[in-house]
């Protein structure tokens, strides 16, 4: 059974971003008017990441003309940081007294997936993965398995993360954001189905992610995929001016000319591979010469993922 990517819904930093639009080292999302997506009673409570995530999800469903998905799966590396920070700061300042429940309620990682379910009145499968750069990959794998196992026909799946002042400060100091990185954020959601919609251009062929592994092993895995699918484009998680050594090694080993970088467009964030997944779709749509696209993503030289999409 094939797994088709039937639609995209995305809220991201302006995809035409140039140096001038990067404000204080950050690329932040261009956000829509949310009043079309939420009633005012909901809007007053939910934080930005829930708005970004839920709205992108709604866009993906609309684009796929799917009203009710059979599963909702979200990947988020750091979850609802704004509400977590808000609750934590007040807890300390107020010495554990007179704390508002709302930020605590919406601080849980599954707030985004559950808000989507609430909006849709959807009682189906609902899960959230939070594992750094594997968060979106895990969600994608789960979606793939549900369709392959015939547990679901239409799966809404996405990756979302936000950058807030606290995390920008702390991630910079701890080195999650390197001096050459631009901090980023965004939400990219997709409807994956076992049937092809009329606008569908791509099929998810393979998804794998492994920890504690050397780049040499990953290159071997990529080569196997290369021979099986004759890959003609590769998307790697680097800024074109600062290409990571692993990305350089993989590009050199596969000798694929069509190499695409995207961190200059969306910035650095844990679920940016969801942005890359959308980029791969767009590439297959706009360049009919491209038939098979490999997405490579890595973290700390030890955790790697390979996602393969094919034109269909």
């Amino acid at each position: 059974m094939a797994v088709y990517i039937n639609s995209i819904g995305q809220i991201a930093p302006n995809s035409l971003a140039n140096e001038e639009q990067i404000i204080a080292g950050k690329l932040t999302c261009i956000e829509p008017d949310y009043s079309a997506f939420f009633d005012s009673r909901t809007l007053r409570r939910i934080s930005r990441i829930i708005k970004i995530g839920t709205t992108s999800a709604m866009m993906a469903l609309k684009n796929a003309t799917v009203e009710m998905p059979d599963a909702i799966i979200v990947g988020t590396g750091f979850g609802c940081q704004e509400d977590t920070s808000l609750f934590l700061r007040k807890l300390i300042t107020n010495k554990e007294e007179t704390l508002n429940p709302t930020p605590f309620i919406f601080s849980t990682h599954n707030s985004i997936a559950s808000q989507i379910a609430l909006q849709l009145k959807c009682h189906a499968y609902n899960s959230t993965y939070s594992h750094r750069n594997f968060s979106f990959e895990s969600a994608l794998l789960d979606a793939y398995l549900l369709i392959k196992d015939d547990d679901a026909q239409h799966v809404l799946v996405g990756g979302v993360d936000e950058i807030i002042d606290d995390s920008f400060d702390l991630f910079t100091r701890i080195g999650y954001l390197k001096p050459t990185d631009i901090a980023g954020e965004g939400a990219s959601f997709f409807v994956l189905s076992d049937v092809k919609s009329k606008d569908c251009v791509a099929e998810l062929k393979s998804i794998e992610f492994v920890a504690n592994t050397e780049i040499a092993t990953i290159i071997d895995k990529a080569k196997t995929l290369y021979h099986e699918y004759s890959i003609d484009a590769i998307i790697v998680g680097s800024h074109p001016d600062h290409v990571h050594q692993n990305d350089q090694d993989l590009i050199a080993a596969l000798k694929i000319e069509n190499t695409i970088f995207y961190k200059q467009l969306c910035g650095e964030y844990a679920t940016s591979s969801a942005y890359a997944f959308a980029t791969a779709n767009t590439l297959l749509k706009e360049n009919k010469a491209v038939k098979n696209v490999l997405i490579y993503n890595q973290y700390a030289n030890s955790n790697h993922s390979l996602i393969l999409l094919s034109a269909c």
């Binding site: 009673r41 409570r45 007294e97 007179t98 704390l99 508002n100 429940p101 709302t102 309620i105």
Partner: peptide, 17 residues
């Protein structure tokens, strides 16, 4: 006004603060 249980808890905080 159509408030719900989370609002009730927020009002508890309001009275305390």
């Amino acid at each position: 006004l159509g408030l719900d249980s989370i609002d009730a808890l927020e009002l508890v905080v309001l009275l305390e603060e």
